[in-house]
């Protein structure tokens, strides 16, 4: 199987879907030619012409137009350069994209097949407005699906599933993953939503990690193995829909859980997942298990690299949390 990086895997998925369905259209800032800052759409405008189009610098128009266009029969796959920019078009995402089917037409059978792709994440000294991982806002919003691949293989299979989905999907790509290589089949395949991936099997503590946190959790697992502690690392891959069954199955085995997310800890996704775990256990008459969360500190993300490191999660911080639940 050929080894390619995540950029190339995403590019393959986009190309296959443009070929498969003439209603698939891409637009965003600098997507023509080499494909903007992150080179994901490289070469596609040469092959597909108008269907891969540069837009003005206008996030509201990029994302809002996707809503109108999807309602009228296109299958837009639009790009936001940074997930931080979702805040510019919150009305379009939260008040429109997420709600249109519910509020505008059970009888109209309104569908909004939209994918909004965007770069997320820190660790790159890009400061407070280009380093966030703002998934929690959108997990909080009924009507959206959230996808966050961590390998080139997943990136291709999940993006193709996202594009074929008839619901609006927010698709997050971590900056650190763009250059990471992995085996990716050249033929078509799809990875279904709501299927968590057990990245490492283990018996002592379940670690649910989101996005780039999977890499850090695997690093922590490697370290802790030396001390005889065995981590089971689970990547949910989609936060909505969320595969709680795999998580609960793992906890059944380990009896302890840590959830890791790159976003600010307060009101974050780990709080939500841990509460769901607690509720499922107590509703089933079981004893709650020791649990902990790891996330960014409750600060804006600082620029200076050592400060940024102090704020964001790390393998060491995961190890610390694991030790807390082991007691």
């Amino acid at each position: 199987m050929p080894e390619i990086n995540m950029r190339q895997a995403l590019n393959q998925a986009l190309r296959e879907e443009l070929l498969h369905d003439p209603t698939v259209h891409i637009w965003g800032e600098n997507v023509e030619g080499v494909g903007g800052g992150f080179l994901i759409t490289m070469g596609l405008s040469n092959e597909f012409g108008e269907r891969v189009k540069d837009s003005p610098l206008a996030e509201t128009a990029i994302v809002g137009a996707a809503v109108g266009a999807a309602y009228c029969g296109l299958r837009p796959v639009v790009e936001l350069m940074f997930a931080d920019f979702t805040y510019i078009c919150m009305d379009e995402i939260v008040n429109k994209m997420a709600k249109v089917r519910y509020s505008f037409g059970a009888y109209n059978d309104v569908k909004l097949p939209i994918v909004v792709r965007m770069k997320v994440g820190g660790y790159f000294a890009q400061s407070s407005e280009h380093s966030q991982t703002p998934l929690a806002h959108f997990m909080h919003t009924p009507g959206l699906k959230l996808v966050f691949p961590t390998t080139p293989y997943e990136a291709k299979g999940l993006l193709k599933t996202a594009i074929r989905d008839d619901n609006p999907v927010l698709f997050f790509e971590h900056i650190i993953h763009f250059a990471a290589k992995g085996e990716v089949p050249e033929e078509e395949y799809f990875i279904p939503f709501e299927e968590a991936n057990i990245r490492r099997e283990g018996s002592d503590v379940t670690v649910v990690a989101i996005g780039y946190m999977v890499d850090l959790a695997l690093e922590a697992a490697e370290e802790l193995a030396k001390e005889g502690v065995s981590l089971e690392v689970i990547d949910p891959r989609t936060l909505e829909p969320l595969d709680m069954d795999t998580i609960m199955g793992s906890i059944e085995k380990t009896g302890r859980v840590v959830v890791v997310d790159e976003d600010v800890t307060r009101c974050g996704i780990p709080a939500e997942i841990l509460m769901q775990i607690f509720e499922q256990l107590t509703e089933a008459g079981k004893t709650p298990v020791p649990m902990a969360r790891v996330g960014a500190a409750n600060t804006p993300i600082p620029y200076s690299p050592e400060l940024e490191k102090a704020v964001l999660p790390s393998a060491d911080k995961i190890i610390e949390a694991v030790k807390k639940v082991l007691v």
């Binding site: 259209h25 809002g64 109108g68 296109l74 837009p76 009305d91 008040n95």
Partner: peptide, 25 residues
């Protein structure tokens, strides 16, 4: 009939998208 909505001024992006779909289709 397109999706009018509760946030005044959200009509513009919706119409722009409809215009794009109309043109491309």
């Amino acid at each position: 009939i397109l999706i009018g909505g509760g946030t005044i001024g959200s009509c513009f992006p919706i119409a722009a998208g409809a215009g794009l779909a109309a043109k491309r289709l």
